[in-house]
Design a protein around this nucleic acid. Structure first.
Length: 457
RNA sequence: GUGGUUGUAGCUCAGCUGGUUAGAGCGCUGGUUUGUGGCACCAGAGGUCGUCGGUUCGAACCCGAUCUUCCACCCCA
């Protein structure tokens, strides 16, 4: 029998100890921020029934769902005629479960199933992996983590303002300074499409405008024409594309531009209110940038839209979100509005790595390692080990009888800062030798002294 | 889903127009040093050249398929 090399499925990764330390640094920052703002943690199963997942992400989304083959004889419901009709006909008979595609739909399902137990407004955060059968690329994986925070059951714009505050807090903690929180409002986009004489086409409008950064205004015009926008409409759009100035200046302009659109003015008013609430918090508009052409998640967002971009790095977009009316409508619970956003941990990881912003000592796990020469030393070491741990120091003993060189090598590789060495002399004096691996200094001390010294370092 | 790209030692990569026994650096193991890691020196182990098939007297090298990697598009975090 030939030995086969193990491999990972496409688009998945292992996280080793070093990576986990760094990931936890990011995740702890995010979690503590969510908790600080009153959000409670939720977890849902990796698998959902396909009836919950399908139809929520569009045709393209359905294709990207990982389906789980039924257990046992998964073919028992399939008939010959089903096979002839094609995959779409066979699928529901061989798979009834799928891996979750995002955290929002499972959350909506949870809210509907627990509507009578929940106290609204309900603020929840959720940090779990999601799966997409996408083609992997840099910063795009088939298994990746989302960190969502949503509040449902309120229309209050305080929530929007708090999202801005949470993003700023997380980024400040992570020492990320050069970034912009782009903010816009779906209603403004709707208003613009009305005003330029193409009502109801804001979706297409935004898909095209969204590429502005990438392909430029010229190409966007081409695409708009291709999508059936009139020349007149494209021309009317021009002042929007050129819009610049402070948030307040842009809003002032839009009030005039959108004066014919009730919906558009409502969007402007909402945005103004969010900024006003921010001011009531005693906070400024640092990093907050009203971006009229920001368009994302248009199929579900109905109010505010957020996106966070880190400047001068290869992967810019690290967070996003928005307000949606009627999150739970598809599951039969009407009128539950919510607003939420999500941090992309994997991308934040890459950004921090690129900017070299991870703290130095993230990987250090053990404070002290105990080494020894013989059985007597080992047994004495076990007592010392227990003492160190009781004092709250992370400690370990080298488990095998081995050359001192090997023991020290192990400590060095693991970046353990201190080694306690035990030989006959130490036992006789009821002390231990403490060696600082960074400086190379070593001296005999009592256990209590060692505890004090290591803790002080 | 469309188009392109990559695969040689644990890692990063050499390897000529197809020609004997496939190399380097780092890492690993052992030694110089049986109460001491990093540094230095010495020695050693480790490869079905992604996989399967084809062309050829002969394939890491040419051809096909497949998997994988990365990139662009679509879309998205």
């Amino acid at each position: 029998m030939s030995i086969q090399k193990p491999t990972l499925p496409k688009g998945t990764r292992d996280f080793g100890p070093i990576q986990m330390a760094k990931r936890n640094y990011i995740l702890e920052t995010i979690k503590s921020t969510f908790r600080l703002f009153g959000y409670q943690q939720l977890e849902t199963p990796s698998m959902e029934n396909l009836s919950v997942l399908t139809g929520k992400y569009g045709d393209e989304g359905d294709q990207l769902l990982f389906k789980v083959l039924n257990s046992g004889d998964f073919l028992k419901k399939v008939k010959g005629e089903d096979l002839e009709k094609g995959a779409a006909n066979v699928l529901p008979k061989v798979a009834e479960k799928g891996l979750r595609y995002d955290l929002t739909v499972p959350f909506a399902r949870y809210v509907v199933m627990n509507r009578n137990e929940l106290t609204f407004p309900f603020k929840r955060f959720q940090i779990q992996p999601v799966w997409r059968a996408d083609r992997p690329q840099r910063g795009r994986y088939r298994e990746f983590y989302q960190c969502d925070a949503d509040v449902v059951g309120t229309d209050s714009l305080i929530c929007e303002a708090e999202i801005l505050l949470m993003i700023r807090r997380v980024f400040a903690e992570l020492k990320l300074e050069d970034y912009d929180i782009k903010i816009n409002n779906r209603k403004i986009l709707t208003g613009i499409s009305e005003v330029i004489g193409e009502p109801g086409k804001e979706g297409e409008l935004c898909v095209a405008i969204d590429k502005l950064d990438k392909i430029g205004w010229e190409k966007v015009q081409e695409e708009l024409t291709q999508r059936g926008f009139t020349e007149d409409a494209v021309k009317k759009l021009e002042p929007i594309i050129d819009l610049s100035g402070s948030n307040d200046e842009k809003l002032a302009f839009l009030k005039g531009f959108l004066s014919e659109s009730e919906e558009g003015l409502k969007g402007v008013a909402e945005l103004e209110e969010v900024l006003k609430i921010l001011a009531e918090f005693g906070e400024g508009q640092e990093h907050v940038d009203f971006d009229v052409v920001l368009a994302r998640g248009l199929s579900y967002y109905t109010g505010a839209i957020f996106e966070v971009k880190v400047n001068n790095v290869s992967i810019g977009s690290v967070s996003g979100g928005g307000r949606y009316d009627n999150l739970t409508g598809v599951f039969g619970l009407e009128g539950v509005s919510g607003v939420g956003f999500s941090f992309g941990v994997d991308r934040i990881y890459d950004v921090l790595e690129e900017l070299n912003l991870f703290p130095e000592d993230q990987t250090q796990s053990t404070n002290v390692m105990i080494g020894y020469f013989d059985e007597e030393g080992r047994n004495y070491g076990l007592k010392i080990l227990n003492g160190l741990r009781s004092a709250g120091l992370s400690a370990e003993i080298y488990p095998d009888y081995a050359k001192v060189k090997k023991q020290f090598n192990y400590a060095d590789k693991k970046q353990v800062p201190y080694v306690v060495m035990i030989g006959s002399e130490e036992i006789a004096q009821n002390k231990v030798t403490l060696k600082n691996l960074k400086t190379g200094e070593q001296e005999m001390h009592s256990l209590e002294e060692v505890i004090g010294m290591v803790k002080a370092s």
